[in-house]
Design a protein around this nucleic acid. Structure first.
Lengths: 144, 144
DNA sequence: CTGGTTGCAAAATTTTTGCACTGGT
DNA sequence: ACCAGTGCAAAAATTTTGCAACCAG
């Protein structure tokens, strides 16, 4: 049993041919849009429906198997869930590359500009969580 | 002449009633989606066209007056261009809040979890720039 | 004046939905 | 065999486009 099959089963999802191939394609490319997944998987499974890809991506994001990577000026891409890392986004070709978060965020950003492998122009940092107001709303509901 | 009029003119754009009101709405809300801008500005200018909002947002992003803030699980929001900062995104209500980048990124993330005002669940860091391959492509074209 | 901008309507694109059929477990 | 999952086609939602009328500079 492959990793992907196990991953799906652990998340309470059936290991269908479509899902396994969607996961393999995402792993192969690292970050990929929904329509690109459709094109790629269609090659080996011509009857695949785009609606199936949509439904599965949504579901797998919900189940935390996948993570949506929203990118300014591009359609969202999807990646397998993994440890925290940084995305380098090329504003010319659209490429997204992972950069492991070995040291601190700040160190990485500095390194980036020094090494000059990547001509940095801007950064976007999003922290996701539950805001104070929504936490209080939760507590009230729990108490009632 | 208001700030917004100056901002538009400096960017080579005509200061139309529509554009000024779009900018005012964005400033008022901080971060807002295109359809929400349309709703808001329509109140004082009923004949506004949604297409005009789309065209202007696109144009103003291109002219670097606005910045697109892509958010996982939501439609992109737009903000006025300003100094670097972090976005706190509430996964319950969708709210986006700015957090100034006074110290380091790492310090801020730590503070966030300690203060517990915001229940952090995940982070997304995108660095935008030009990748090595695209830089070389540029250099070649410059040389020829 | 006049070229950039708007509003409208239509087109294109993207995403969602309902439902009969299929396939994993 | 059961029910989650698929594929299809249609609907809904979102974004883009072309063009005549308009208005800021």
């Amino acid at each position: 049993m492959t990793d992907h099959v196990a991953l799906l089963k652990d998340s309470g999802l059936k290991a269908t041919f479509q899902r396994i191939n969607i996961l393999e394609t995402i792993e192969k490319y690292g970050h990929i849009t929904i329509d690109a997944i459709y094109e790629e998987v269609s090659r080996i499974h011509a009857s695949l429906s785009l609606a199936t890809v949509y439904k599965n991506i949504l579901l797998m994001v919900e189940k935390k198997v996948l993570v949506e990577v929203p990118v300014a000026g591009q359609k969202s891409k999807y990646e397998l869930k993994k440890e925290d890392h940084i995305h380098l986004v090329c504003t010319e070709c659209g490429m997204v590359e992972d950069k492991p978060l070995i040291n601190s965020v700040d160190t990485l950003i500095e390194d980036m500009t020094k090494e000059e492998k990547f001509a940095l122009s801007s950064e976007q940092i999003n922290l996701y969580g539950v805001c104070r107001a929504c936490q209080e709303k939760r507590d009230q509901q729990a108490a009632s």
